[in-house]
C-alpha cells in the first residue's frame, strides 16, 4: 500500500466518522417521526461555534464542549416543540419545509449571535502527528474514532438493553401499539430531537480542530450526513455508521485521486446513485416514502 493511499484512507475514515455521527441524528429522527430533518447540519455548526465562543470566554474546553452539546440538544427540543409539533398533520413535504426553514433561521441567528468568521479549536491531545505505514495521522483523528465508537456502542446498548430504548424502537415499528402500552409518542420524538441535536453538536466539537467552523458550515455537513444516512438506509443505526465511512472514504479518495474540486460533489453523486439504484440503502429493509 502506498503511503499516499493510506493517507487518503485515514483522512476518509476521520471525516467519515464525523458524517456517521451526523447520519445517526438523521436516522434517530427519521425512526421516531418519519421526518427528514434538514436542520441536522445546523446542530453541527452550533456545537462547533458555541464551543469556540464559550471556550474563548475562559471556560475550560471540556466544559465548553459539554455546554455546547446541551445547548444544541435544547435547540433540537425547541425545533420539535415550536416547529414540528405545531405542524402535526402537515404533509411530509410541509414538514420538510419546516425543517429547512428552521435551518435558515438557525444559520441567520448564528451569523448574528456569533459572527461570520472562521474559527478553530485546539486539538484535544496536541498536534504531534502519529506515523502509520508512512502516512501521518493527527491525534484528533484518534479522538474522533474513539468517541464515535463509544457513542455508537452507547446507543446500541441503549436501544437493545434498556426498556426506554426498546420503547423508542417500538414506537418506530408500530406507533399505535406503542401508545397502547403506554409509550407517549410525542416524548419519543422529543427525545430523538434532543439526541440528534447532541450528536450533531458532538460532531461539530470533534471536527472543528481539523476543519475550521463558520456559521454556514452546517449546510454541507448536513448534506453529507444525509448522504451517509441514506447510503446505510435511513433509520438504521449500523447503516449510519457504515454509510458515514463510505461517504467519507469516497470523498477522500475522489479528492485525492481525481481532483479536490470533486470533494463536495461526491456527496451529491452518492445521494443520486442511492435514490436511483437502491432507495432503501444498504441496510434498509423497506423503501422510504417518496416525498
Amino acid at each position: 500500500m502506498s503511503a499516499t493511499f493510506v493517507q487518503f484512507l485515514l483522512a476518509g475514515l476521520t471525516v467519515g466518522a464525523i458524517y456517521a455521527l451526523i447520519a445517526l441524528g438523521f436516522s434517530l429522527i427519521y425512526n421516531a417521526s418519519h421526518l427528514i430533518n434538514f436542520a441536522q447540519g445546523e446542530f453541527v455548526m452550533l456545537g462547533g461555534l458555541a464551543t469556540v465562543f464559550v471556550f474563548a470566554a475562559g471556560v475550560p474546553l471540556p466544559l465548553a464542549a459539554l455546554l455546547a452539546i446541551l445547548a444544541a440538544a435544547a435547540v433540537g427540543v425547541a425545533l420539535y416543540l415550536f416547529g414540528v409539533a405545531p405542524a402535526r398533520g402537515a404533509t411530509a413535504v410541509g414538514l420538510i419545509i419546516v425543517t429547512i426553514g428552521a435551518s435558515i433561521l438557525l444559520k441567520g441567528l448564528a451569523g448574528v449571535v456569533f459572527d461570520r468568521n472562521f474559527h478553530g479549536l485546539p486539538p484535544i491531545s496536541g498536534e504531534e502527528p502519529l506515523r502509520i505505514l508512512g502516512a501521518t495521522l493527527a491525534p484528533q483523528s484518534l479522538w474522533i474514532f474513539g468517541v464515535t465508537a463509544a457513542v455508537a456502542l452507547a446507543l446500541w446498548l441503549f436501544f437493545t438493553r434498556t426498556l426506554q430504548g426498546k420503547a423508542m424502537l417500538a414506537a418506530a415499528f408500530n406507533p399505535l401499539a406503542a401508545e397502547l402500552v403506554g409509550v407517549d409518542p410525542r416524548r419519543v420524538v422529543l427525545v430523538s430531537f434532543a439526541l440528534a441535536g447532541a450528536l450533531g453538536a458532538l460532531a461539530g466539537v470533534l471536527v472543528t480542530p481539523l476543519a475550521p467552523t463558520h456559521f454556514q458550515v452546517g449546510t454541507m455537513l448536513g448534506l453529507k450526513g444525509f448522504a451517509a444516512a441514506i447510503v446505510g438506509g435511513l433509520g438504521s443505526g449500523p447503516g449510519a455508521m457504515v454509510g458515514g465511512l463510505v461517504v467519507g472514504l469516497a470523498e477522500s479518495l475522489a479528492a485525492g485521486y481525481l481532483s479536490s474540486a470533486y470533494k463536495d460533489a461526491i456527496a451529491f453523486v452518492i445521494i443520486l446513485l442511492v435514490l436511483v439504484l437502491r432507495p432503501s440503502g444498504l441496510f434498509g429493509a423497506k423503501t422510504i416514502e417518496r416525498v
Binding site: 426498546k166 415499528f173 397502547l180 402500552v181
Partner: peptide
Amino acid sequence: RQVFAPMSVEDNLLLGGYV
C-alpha cells in the same frame, strides 16, 4: 394484533409492562 414484529417475543411482553 399489532405486535412489534421485528422485536423478540419477550421484548414485546416487557414493553407491555412499560408503565
